[in-house]
Amino acid sequence: MKSCLIVDDSKTVRMVAKRILEELSFSTREACDGQEALQLCESEMPDAILLDWNMPVKNGIDFLRELRGKVGVNQPVVIFCTTENGLSHIHEAIAAGADEYIMKPFDSGIVESKFSQVGLI
């Protein structure tokens, strides 16, 4: 079973994403900010990360840059899932190492499509 770390400061968003991903046969773990996500990745690297941009403590883009900067680490697929919909944000995310980008609000069809596009389902 593939695993996905859901990183979002909204408990509601994490709950919805968890339900969708579990229906797609993913095991899930959750983090409420980028710092907690880094700690979880150090203990067990997931196959995928669904990542919000705007969070306290450590935001999504800083988390992604730090994650991608780790040498010799099995790198997961990272899909941003955020309200930041400007082209500059999308370009910045891709340049930092994001594999895909989902705009909030999202539904199961969008999540399934993006995870399929990156080869996870």
Rank of each mutant, 00 (worst) to 15 (best):
M1Y: 00
M1K: 11
K2T: 04
S3N: 08
C4W: 00
I6S: 00
I6H: 06
D8H: 04
T12K: 07
V13M: 11
V16C: 04
A17W: 01
R19G: 01
L21T: 05
E22C: 09
S25Y: 15
F26C: 07
F26P: 06
E30I: 10
A31I: 03
D33C: 12
G34C: 09
A37C: 08
A37I: 01
C41I: 03
E42H: 13
D47P: 04
I49S: 08
I49Q: 01
L50S: 08
L51D: 06
W53N: 13
W53A: 11
M55E: 00
V57W: 09
K58T: 03
K58Y: 00
D62G: 07
D62Y: 02
F63N: 01
F63I: 06
F63A: 04
L64E: 01
E66D: 14
K70D: 02
V71K: 15
G72Y: 12
G72R: 12
V73Y: 05
V73L: 12
V73A: 06
N74Q: 03
Q75V: 03
P76R: 04
V77G: 03
I79S: 02
I79W: 03
F80V: 04
C81D: 00
C81Q: 09
T82Y: 01
T82V: 12
E84I: 09
N85V: 11
G86F: 03
G86Y: 12
L87P: 11
H89K: 11
E92C: 12
I94N: 08
A95R: 11
G97W: 02
A98D: 06
A98Y: 03
E100R: 14
E100L: 10
Y101T: 05
Y101S: 05
Y101V: 01
P105R: 14
S108Y: 04
S108P: 08
I110P: 05
V111T: 08
E112C: 12
S113D: 05
K114A: 06
F115T: 10
S116L: 15
Q117S: 15
Q117T: 14
Q117R: 15
V118N: 13
L120A: 02
I121H: 07
